[in-house]
């Protein structure tokens, strides 16, 4: 398999994304690398083919946004909104991720090997996110479904106004947001965790984690809860 190389500085962003968008399900050019990323925005967004894209260097806003099927590896850190609204496929960030990583994601797996900043997994809708390090404040705000796994610590207001996403944290949680509570870890949760940790290459045991979820007190308006909104 020959790796195709695209030089972002020489070829430009439109050429990069148009070339990657042109790949169909049956493409035989399945291996791509992007060089001279230099923090550029919107690298490899909107892909929809079973291809592998390796980005050399750090990326700017929205790398891998809306991804379907593709496997994207960022060999650096990712700017705000990495994997935003991704549908399927895998994104692995070798460094850190900036704010709102995986926001509104519907599916697929986002792995951050360093730390993720604030609002990680905000409004996630089915994506699985595994962070090897810590996450910042307001993570999983209004998260609807999917799993957020944090091997390190979580910042303030974790899972505020949470719907049905599951949150697993191994370290400390600075504070829980409104309507987010610790829940019992049952065998099926340990199975989900084991699978995600393995797929994310995280060296952690499912038993070391705590599970957090919605207390479901904010789903319907109750005047006694007015202060919590």
């Amino acid at each position: 398999m020959i790796m195709q190389t695209i030089d972002l500085e020489a070829d430009g962003l439109r050429a990069l994304n148009a070339t990657l968008h042109a790949q169909k399900d049956d493409t035989n050019q399945t291996s791509w690398e992007v060089v001279n990323a230099k923090g550029s925005h919107a690298i490899a967004v909107g892909l929809d083919a079973p291809i592998e894209v390796t980005v050399r260097g750090s990326t700017g806003y929205y790398c891998g946004g809306m991804n379907k099927q593709a496997t994207i590896n960022v060999q650096g850190s990712a700017g705000p909104g990495v994997g935003e609204n991704m549908m399927s496929g895998t994104i692995v960030v070798e460094g850190d991720a900036s704010q709102y990583a995986g926001a509104t994601g519907h599916g697929g797996l986002l792995v951050v090997k360093g730390n993720a900043s604030s609002r990680c997994g905000i409004s996630m809708k089915g994506i699985d996110i595994v962070v090897h390090g810590n996450i910042g404040h307001m993570s999983a705000f209004m998260a609807q479904s999917g799993n957020l796994v944090v091997c390190g610590d979580a910042g303030d207001a974790l899972g505020d106004s949470l719907y049905e996403a599951r949150i697993f944290v191994r370290g400390e949680v600075k504070s829980l947001g409104a309507d987010c509570i610790e829940k019992e870890m049952r065998p099926e949760h340990l199975e989900i965790l084991r699978d995600l940790l393995e797929r994310a290459g995280a060296d952690a045991k499912p038993e070391e984690f705590r599970r957090y979820g919605s207390a479901r007190q904010l789903y319907n308006f109750d005047v006694d809860n007015a202060g919590a909104y």
Binding site: K38, S58, G60, Y61, D96, S117
Partner: peptide, 19 residues
């Protein structure tokens, strides 16, 4: 404000980069 502003600094590849 963005990493782009730092991308051409000498030794940035091995710098400690954080928010």
């Amino acid at each position: 404000t963005e990493y782009r502003a730092l991308a051409n600094l000498p030794g940035i590849e091995t710098a400690r980069v954080w928010e």
